[in-house]
Simulated assay, not measured.
Amino acid sequence: MPAQSKAQQKAAGAALAAKRGDAKVGDLKGASQQMYQSMTEKQLDDLASTKRKALPDKKD
């Protein structure tokens, strides 16, 4: 499942870093915290690995 916006891709990257232990879970806020709690590492990796070039800044 590819990310639908740059903001979603960035939030997934932050949640993925926390899942892997590279970032603190306590530093997560908003969407990234929800993603951390509800998604698997594989799902987060799929979202975070989406190429950003063609994505809008935010989803309408």
Rank of each mutant, 00 (worst) to 15 (best):
A54M: 12
A15S: 14
R52C: 00
Q9H: 11
Q37D: 14
T40V: 06
E41F: 07
A11W: 10
K6Q: 09
S49Y: 01
L16W: 01
Q8V: 14
Q33E: 15
K6F: 03
G26V: 04
K59N: 09
R20T: 12
D22N: 08
S5T: 14
D27Y: 11
T50I: 10
T50F: 04
V25N: 05
K24V: 04
G30Q: 04
D60T: 11
Y36M: 10
T40I: 09
Q43A: 04
R52F: 01
D45G: 04
M35I: 05
A31F: 02
A15C: 15
K59C: 01
L28D: 03
Y36N: 04
Q33K: 15
A23V: 11
K19P: 00
A54F: 11
D22G: 02
Q43D: 05
A7E: 08
V25I: 12
A3H: 06
R20F: 10
G21P: 00
A14F: 06
A11E: 10
L28T: 03
A31L: 08
S32W: 01
A12G: 07
M35Q: 06
M1R: 13
Q37P: 00
D46W: 00
Q8T: 09
P2I: 03
A48F: 09
Q34G: 13
Q34I: 12
A14R: 10
D27A: 13
T40K: 05
A23Y: 11
M35H: 03
D46H: 01
K29Q: 08
A48W: 07
T40Q: 05
Y36T: 06
D60V: 09
Q4A: 12
Q33W: 11
R52Q: 05
D45P: 01
Q34E: 14
E41M: 08
K10Y: 13
D22E: 12
A31R: 04
P56V: 09
L28G: 03
K42P: 00
A3S: 15
Q33S: 15
A48M: 10
A23W: 12
D57V: 15
Q8I: 14
K58Y: 05
P2K: 10
T40A: 07
Q43T: 02
A54H: 12
A23F: 12
A54R: 09
G13R: 01
L16P: 01
Q8G: 05
L44I: 04
Q34S: 13
Q8H: 14
Q34T: 14
E41L: 09
L55Y: 02
K24Q: 07
M1I: 11
Q34P: 00
K19D: 02
L47Q: 05
D45I: 00
A18E: 14
K10Q: 08
E41Y: 06
K10H: 11
K6D: 00
S38C: 06
D46G: 02
Q37G: 13
A12R: 05
G13H: 00
Q43R: 04
R20L: 15
D60I: 07
